[in-house]
C-alpha cells in the first residue's frame, strides 16, 4: 500500500496512491494509516481521488482508520470517484464522514 502524507493549512493530507482499497489490502491500509496519523493535526484529509474501487473491507478499513485517530480528531474524505462515493452512500457512511468533491475543496474548508 502506498500512502503519502503532507500538511496544508493545519490539516494533514494523506493521499492513497492505489487504484483499489479491497480485501487484499484492507488490513495493511489500516496499519499504514495508523503509522501515518499517529500524531499530527486534529484534522486528517484522506485524498481518495486515485481510488477507482472500494469494497466493504476497504470501507471497514477507512472506518477503522477514523476510529483509531481518537482524541476528537477527525477524518475527512476528499475526491471520491463515483463508485467510491456510491459505496459510502449506499451504506449511509456518507452521513458519518465529511465528503468533499476535491482535495482543494477539503483544504479550503479548513480555513473557514
Amino acid at each position: 500500500m502506498s500512502l503519502t502524507s503532507t500538511k496544508a493549512d493545519g490539516a494533514q493530507i494523506v493521499t492513497v496512491n492505489a487504484e483499489r482499497i479491497d480485501a487484499a489490502i484492507a488490513i495493511q491500509f489500516k496499519e499504514d494509516m495508523r503509522s501515518e496519523t499517529e500524531s499530527g493535526p486534529h484534522r486528517v484529509i484522506l485524498d481518495l481521488s486515485a481510488v477507482q474501487f472500494i469494497d466493504s473491507s476497504g470501507l471497514g478499513a477507512i472506518v477503522a482508520a477514523m476510529k483509531q485517530l481518537g482524541g476528537g480528531r477527525r477524518l475527512d474524505l476528499a475526491g471520491p470517484t463515483p463508485m467510491v462515493e456510491k459505496v459510502f452512500r449506499l451504506t449511509r457512511m456518507d452521513t458519518i464522514f465529511n465528503l468533499y468533491g476535491s482535495l482543494n475543496e477539503a483544504v479550503a474548508a479548513t480555513k473557514t
Binding site: 466493504s56 477514523m66 451504506t91 458519518i96
Partner: peptide, 9 residues
Amino acid sequence: LEDLPEGGF
C-alpha cells in the same frame, strides 16, 4: 463513533 461497524456491509 466508536461503535461504528467495520464490516457486515
